[in-house]
Computed example of a mutant assay.
Amino acid sequence: MPKGMNMLSLLVLFSMLLMIGLTFYVQQPIIPQLVSLVMLIASALLFRATIRESSKAGLLAAFDEKLPGSLLMTGPYSVVRHPFYSSYLLLWSGWAIGTWSPWSLVPLTAIIITYWVAAKGEEQKFASTAMAEEYAQYKARTGRFIPRIFGRG
């Protein structure tokens, strides 16, 4: 398993323990709970669609040092370049909102940075493959984690 993936696993474990504690020991208003629930459902639906789309592609794990061997541009990949990470970010953001605690921003920030670093590294690897030009065009029309609505950004 790549070293970065080991670090990510530890971050996720720490974050889960903190979020579980906040969920059960901090009083949350109903509106953040409902927003959280919607985001968690959206995360699960996106995750499932991404699994369905990528099941035969042989994608690499986060922080893998190997160069990518395939490029997916269909299903959720048609609007975001990293739909797995998008689903994870939806989950963690929703959970942070649901806890209604400023302490949830600590792991959320660490997770956002970690997935951003992983995605950036994966995108740089595409520049070293025969798919570099195709990926550059794909990158110009899709968002990293959220759909691109207006031009570049």
Rank of each mutant, 00 (worst) to 15 (best):
P2R: 06
K3V: 15
G4P: 15
N6V: 10
S9L: 15
S9H: 12
L11S: 11
V12Y: 11
S15G: 14
S15Q: 15
L17S: 06
L17R: 06
L18F: 11
L18H: 13
L22K: 04
T23H: 03
T23V: 02
F24V: 02
P29A: 15
I31F: 04
I31W: 11
Q33A: 15
L34M: 12
V38S: 10
V38E: 12
V38M: 10
I41Y: 02
S43P: 00
S43G: 01
S43T: 00
L45C: 13
L46K: 07
A49H: 14
I51S: 12
L60A: 02
L60F: 01
A61F: 15
D64W: 05
K66I: 09
L67F: 12
S70Q: 11
L71A: 01
L71D: 04
L71S: 01
L72T: 04
T74Y: 07
V80H: 09
V80R: 07
P83M: 02
P83K: 02
F84W: 07
Y85N: 00
S86Y: 14
Y88V: 05
L90A: 02
L90T: 03
L91K: 11
L91S: 09
L91G: 05
W95S: 03
T99D: 10
T99S: 04
W100L: 01
S101Q: 11
W103Y: 12
L105E: 12
L105A: 14
L105T: 08
V106C: 07
T109E: 02
T109A: 02
A110C: 13
I112T: 01
I113K: 04
T114K: 01
V117N: 07
A118C: 06
K120R: 12
K120S: 12
E122N: 03
E122F: 12
Q124S: 10
F126L: 05
A130M: 05
A130V: 08
E133I: 14
E134S: 05
A136S: 10
Y138N: 00
K139Q: 15
R141C: 00
R144G: 05
R148W: 10
F150G: 00
F150S: 13
G151I: 05
R152E: 13
